[in-house]
Simulated assay, not measured.
Amino acid sequence: MTFKAAKEFNTPVGNYCYYHISRETYPIGITQIKEGNSVYIMATPEKALCDLIANQPGINLRYKKEALEFLEENLRFDMDKFCQFNPEIFLAYAKNGKKSTSILTILKLLQHE
């Protein structure tokens, strides 16, 4: 994700796609990691899921059953780990990002509503 222009890079290692995201949504769910003298940022699993939902065409999760099927069958999510996700990240993303209905459906599934 980037708040700059979207770009694609094809390298011998693999293909990389950077998708545009709003400046308001970009920092939600970003964590800073320090390893030795290096510092870098990485998306939390919650942010990665939100970014995927918000930026992949054809995903429209209106019902918890759809959301559960998407997580279990399409993404093969470990649902025990999903239950440990931070709901605040989904809530913040839904307030600022695209596809807020789908993100809120995921949040309802997480909170067992």
Score class of each variant (00 low, 15 high):
residue 63 Y to R: 12
residue 69 E to Q: 04
residue 70 F to D: 03
residue 76 R to I: 01
residue 29 G to N: 07
residue 93 Y to I: 07
residue 106 I to V: 06
residue 44 T to H: 06
residue 85 F to Q: 05
residue 37 N to G: 03
residue 102 S to D: 02
residue 49 L to W: 03
residue 14 G to S: 13
residue 37 N to Q: 09
residue 111 Q to Y: 00
residue 44 T to I: 05
residue 112 H to N: 14
residue 43 A to F: 02
residue 109 L to K: 08
residue 65 K to L: 04
residue 89 I to E: 04
residue 102 S to Y: 03
residue 41 I to V: 13
residue 108 K to E: 14
residue 88 E to P: 03
residue 7 K to C: 05
residue 10 N to R: 10
residue 57 P to N: 12
residue 34 K to E: 06
residue 58 G to S: 05
residue 14 G to K: 15
residue 54 A to E: 14
residue 30 I to F: 05
residue 93 Y to H: 04
residue 48 A to F: 05
residue 70 F to V: 11
residue 112 H to T: 03
residue 80 D to E: 13
residue 80 D to R: 07
residue 90 F to V: 04
residue 80 D to F: 14
residue 108 K to F: 14
residue 57 P to D: 15
residue 53 I to M: 00
residue 52 L to F: 12
residue 42 M to S: 14
residue 16 Y to K: 11
residue 15 N to F: 06
residue 17 C to R: 15
residue 53 I to K: 00
residue 112 H to D: 14
residue 50 C to P: 12
residue 103 I to Y: 07
residue 48 A to W: 08
residue 31 T to L: 01
residue 5 A to D: 15
residue 52 L to W: 06
residue 28 I to V: 11
residue 32 Q to C: 13
residue 29 G to I: 06
residue 15 N to C: 06
residue 97 G to Y: 02
residue 64 K to T: 10
residue 110 L to A: 02
residue 76 R to G: 03
residue 82 F to Q: 06
residue 44 T to Q: 07
residue 61 L to T: 05
residue 59 I to E: 01
residue 99 K to Y: 02
residue 33 I to F: 00
residue 1 M to G: 04
residue 67 A to G: 01
residue 68 L to Y: 12
residue 43 A to V: 04
residue 94 A to E: 05
residue 40 Y to N: 00
residue 108 K to M: 13
residue 11 T to F: 11
residue 1 M to Y: 07
residue 101 T to F: 08
residue 93 Y to R: 05
residue 105 T to R: 06
residue 108 K to D: 15
residue 93 Y to M: 09
residue 57 P to Q: 12
residue 72 E to I: 08
residue 18 Y to L: 15
residue 75 L to M: 15
residue 77 F to P: 00
residue 30 I to A: 02
residue 112 H to P: 03
residue 49 L to N: 05
